[in-house]
């Protein structure tokens, strides 16, 4: 397992996504699947940057663990406000341009790109666990 801990700010997005991307590459994921993993990771991170620490600075930690069945487990942990992104509904994907809302897509992408996605609150921390298979099941 490898991990990285950094302040939860947008300025660290590139480094955090790059860290996950390198893990996926070293595990043998295809470039296309890596783009999908980057997308799910970015959406989870941006939510934390925006909402976890309304009262001041805080950190987040990302860990990557290659699994035996050609998959990668990615955990993202913060000790900010309790927030379960999976409790939110998907956006209306059919809405036309004037009706279409600007938010909600991030969580949809997290769900869509991951093979498994779980949230738990443990010891004052939000923990999101993604499982990505090398080839996403349809």
């Amino acid at each position: 397992m490898s991990k990285i801990k950094l302040p939860a700010t947008i300025g660290h997005l590139e480094r955090l996504v790059g860290f996950v991307s390198d893990c996926a590459k070293n595990t043998g994921f295809s470039d296309n699947r890596i783009r999908e993993i980057e997308l799910a990771t970015e959406e989870a991170l941006v939510n934390i940057f925006n909402y976890a620490y309304p009262d001041g600075p805080g950190d987040l930690e990302v860990s990557c663990t290659p699994q035996q069945n050609a998959s990668l487990k990615i955990e993202i942990m913060d000790n900010g406000m309790p927030f379960d992104p999976l409790s939110l509904p998907d956006p209306d994907l059919q809405a036309d341009i004037s009706e279409r809302k600007v938010g909600g897509l991030g969580i949809f992408f997290m769900r869509k790109m991951a093979d498994e996605l779980q949230y738990r609150r443990e010891k004052g921390c939000n923990i999101l666990t993604f499982i990505f298979l090398m080839k996403k099941a349809d």
């Binding site: 783009r35 980057e38 997308l39 970015e42 959406e43 941006v46 341009i97 004037s98 279409r100 600007v102 938010g103 897509l105 991030g106 949809f108 992408f109």
Partner: peptide, 20 residues
């Protein structure tokens, strides 16, 4: 363009609404 996230889609939606 190699990659786009919801933040990119959001900026396109905002621009498209403005143009409309």
């Amino acid at each position: 363009l190699d990659y786009i996230s919801s933040a990119g889609l959001r900026s396109i939606l905002v621009t498209a609404k403005k143009l409309k």
